[in-house]
Design a protein around this nucleic acid. Structure first.
Lengths: 150, 150
DNA sequence: TTATTTAGTAATAAAAAATGTTACAGTTTT
DNA sequence: AAAACTGTAACATTTTTTATTACTAAATAA
């Protein structure tokens, strides 16, 4: 559910951007509007109103999934590397590591209580079904569909 | 999406428990297992492995929705006040103020950008459809159904 | 009728998560 | 070379979530 932000002394620290999906789809929508240009993180950040470093982090994730390509140096930036009519929101959803659920209690429940012992398992089952429904919805929408609403 | 935790000088402060739904359903499942007893927040907290004060806060929310009733004083506690076969997970979902979504970017996007101007509106529409699907699923499951899995 | 156990809830503290900033090395173009 | 970028580490700040303490009021039981 996370991406690497940095590591110090061989220990990884992760940080999840809760707006990850929203930010990523915003980035992709912009890229799709200008399919021939390399857009800079500064420019994209100006539309999202977000720190450019955070934009570059999301772009790093997209690059890892080969959805975008970027060019360093002057006049560099990022552009789409895939056909936006074939990229579905489901894929974007999965790339941003989101999972639909209604949460879990933070601490491990009491294993000596019949309810505590099984609660997370039963919630998992409920949430899994939820994810299927949501995935089916998102699979039917392409980046291009989404982007054409603007 | 919240419940009142406290207020100071007429200003309300809210805090959302991210495990609110999970905690609430855990509480209700326990109550449904012992429909004739008043269970104490201490006992319930022991099953969830959570601070009793937080359990009482969720119970306060359930009381406000007339789902449970509680009794103060010695041998006091809380018990179900409704028929568990008629209470659906959708109602619990709504009582815990959850909304299914994939998040929003934190800051207000740039209104001068065509994408920034409409992004949240378009996300809203996407998320609204998601909520409908999830609600339909949750409406089909009663507390009793859920509770019988244990 | 007093001690005890419980809910209710305010206030505050602590922990965790999310977001923001600075800094700088490395690339590419002009 | 200078300038404009990406990439990413390190750290700072803010926000959210969870935990704790403390106390009042209510009900029961001894």
């Amino acid at each position: 559910m996370c991406y690497k932000t940095h590591y110090i002394c061989n220990i990884f620290y992760y940080s999840m951007l809760s707006g990850k999906f929203a930010i990523t789809i915003h980035i992709l929508t912009l890229l799709n509007k200008f399919p021939n240009d390399y857009l800079s993180s500064e420019y994209i950040a100006g539309s999202i109103n977000l720190n450019p470093v955070l934009v570059r982090k999301e772009i790093a994730n997209l690059k890892a999934h080969h959805i975008v390509e970027s060019k360093e140096g002057k006049n560099g930036g990022t552009k789409l590397a895939v056909d936006s009519s074939k990229l579905t929101l489901k894929e974007i959803f999965e790339m941003t590591f989101e999972t639909i659920n209604l949460g879990y209690a933070k601490n491990q429940p009491n294993p000596d209580c019949p309810v505590g012992k099984k609660i997370n398992q039963n919630l998992d089952a409920l949430y899994a079904e939820m994810n299927q429904k949501v995935s089916a919805q998102l699979e039917g929408i392409s980046l291009d569909d989404f982007s054409n609403q603007f």
